[in-house]
């Protein structure tokens, strides 16, 4: 890991020293162990603040839309897919962007780590290539990173950035797409699916962190914030409204969602949101053979029409 960290710092330092960019967006150590925070580095001497480890989970593509200044950005595979998807939607000007690509082997889920430590306070943590050393007041524990990965990272199919100006390390091996989880959920009865989703969404507090964390959610006025007309009830106590909110939020990402998992990672209530987003990723793949944010020349799945597009939704006659 430290090799990548040094390479990221060097790349940032060079970019800033040569005045190629105005700011480098990367990660810095957060105020707590196992926390990284997005960092905005403007001077070459600040570049040493940049870190790279298994807690750099935010999707930095969120900071790149409609920016005038020249930006250097440190990206993982998922961030790069979001960047590519946003470039296609004319939200990012590639000429103003310098992409420092980092092959990513997955980020850890702090909730799983906390469970493994039985809720005991972690006062220090150290990430190595494949293990995590946790220290508390009266314990020390080593866990394998692969055992505590975020679900989106464990299922990731694009660990290596799909677009970059510079790659700071060797590419890692990719794995195949597997929709077994969604297929299993589809196979359940309507009542079972309803029951599971209403239980999950009963936890929703309508903080809209999922919306804000999503790089693809950028409407200037979101339908949930409208009051005239009020498209959806604002109270989190009505589960049907929570479901409607998620249905619309998820559907806005149809054919655009890159399954980066930022929504689920941002959720403070631990709601299983990828059960919804991945359904649409799977549908887009199956119906239109479309994968968001992978190739610049691919047309957006729902903005193009071909006369031979499948139409399984039509009333059967």
């Amino acid at each position: 890991m430290s090799g990548i960290e040094n390479a990221v710092q060097d790349a940032a330092k060079k970019l800033l020293a040569e005045n190629k960019v105005d700011v480098v967006i990367g990660f810095a150590q957060g105020s707590q162990p196992l926390r990284s925070t997005p960092a905005f580095i403007r001077k070459p001497e600040e570049a040493e603040k940049l870190t790279w480890n298994c807690t750099c989970e935010n999707n930095l593509a969120n900071y790149l839309r409609k920016k005038e200044q020249k930006i250097g950005v440190v990206v993982k595979g998922c961030d790069s897919r979001s960047i590519l998807a946003l470039m296609k939607e004319n939200q990012i000007n590639r000429d103003n962007l310098y992409i420092i690509g980092v092959p990513c082997s997955g980020m850890i889920d702090r909730k799983q780590v906390a469970d493994l430590c039985e809720g005991k306070e972690i006062i220090a943590a150290e990430c190595t290539d494949d293990a995590l050393v946790l220290k508390g007041h009266d314990f020390e524990k080593t866990v394998n990173i692969v055992d505590v990965l975020h679900r989106s990272c464990a299922a990731c199919t694009h660990k290596n950035p799909v677009i970059y100006d510079e790659m700071v390390a060797e590419a890692v091996t990719e794995q195949k797409e597997d929709f077994a989880d969604i297929e299993a959920f589809e196979a359940k009865s309507t009542a079972e699916r309803r029951a599971y989703l209403s239980q999950e969404l009963s936890k929703c507090i309508r903080c809209y962190a999922c919306r804000n964390a999503c790089p693809m959610c950028y409407c200037e006025q979101c339908f949930v914030d409208c009051s005239t007309p009020e498209w959806v009830g604002k109270s989190a106590s009505d589960i049907q409204d929570n479901m409607l909110f998620q249905a619309v939020r998820v559907f806005h990402g149809a054919g655009r969602c890159t399954d980066c998992g930022a929504c689920e990672r941002a959720c403070p209530m631990g709601i299983d949101l990828r059960i919804l987003t991945r359904k649409l990723v799977k549908d887009a793949k199956e119906l239109f053979d479309a994968e968001a944010g992978v190739k610049m020349e691919d047309k957006p799945a729902l903005s193009t029409f071909e006369s031979d597009d499948p139409q399984p939704f039509l009333v059967k006659e």
Binding site: A191, R193, A247, V250, F251, L276, K279, L280, L287, F313
Partner: peptide, 11 residues
């Protein structure tokens, strides 16, 4: 996709 999502969600 909308029909498919709604039915998936329990409509």
């Amino acid at each position: 996709m909308l029909k498919s999502l709604l039915e998936y969600m329990g409509v």
